[in-house]
Amino acid sequence: MTSLPIAGPTQHAVYTGRTTSWPMVATTCAGALLIVLMGKESNGAWTDLMFVVPLILVAIGVLANVLTASSVRATAGPNGFTIRWGLVGWPRCTYRLDEIEHAEVIDLPWWRVSYGFWRTPKRTNCTVRSGPTVRLSLRNQRIVTITVPEPAAAVAALREASAGGQLGIA
């Protein structure tokens, strides 16, 4: 709703967005298919560890994918920027406004998409597709890149929320 007027001084404006991680959904479906195929191939040998152990591992992988990596939800506003993954909203990261030095919309090339939650010493990537993406530069020099449906609206919400121009919006 980017055409709406800027929130007034007494208004509380936030942006929320949810992006489905289709590669992870495809991986989950492939894993589920693998479970079915393993079940068919077992020929009733369910007590055989050669079948049971890989089956349990694949099942755990599928469940973990569904719970933690199927989608990414972002919230931007006076409470800062919060990222939640999957059905249960975990893992979760919150960057308070006073932690954010700079927020901008960048054009993420496909070869830099992380397709999940990646944390390195200097960067945090929560990207599931290429194209316009929010990039936060934190005061501790960490760079955070997050996929949201409307990056410009998310950055605008941060800008509205930042009292006294704490953020420099590109």
Binding site: M1, G8, T10, Q11, H12, A13
Partner: peptide
């Protein structure tokens, strides 16, 4: 989706939230 509510408004908060959804729809 952008949500904007006014805590000082006389309009009930739940009505303001519902208005945001209606506007988005």
């Amino acid at each position: 989706m952008r949500w904007a509510i006014d805590h000082t408004s006389r309009e009930r908060l739940q009505d303001q939230i519902a208005t945001c959804v209606r506007r988005g729809v």
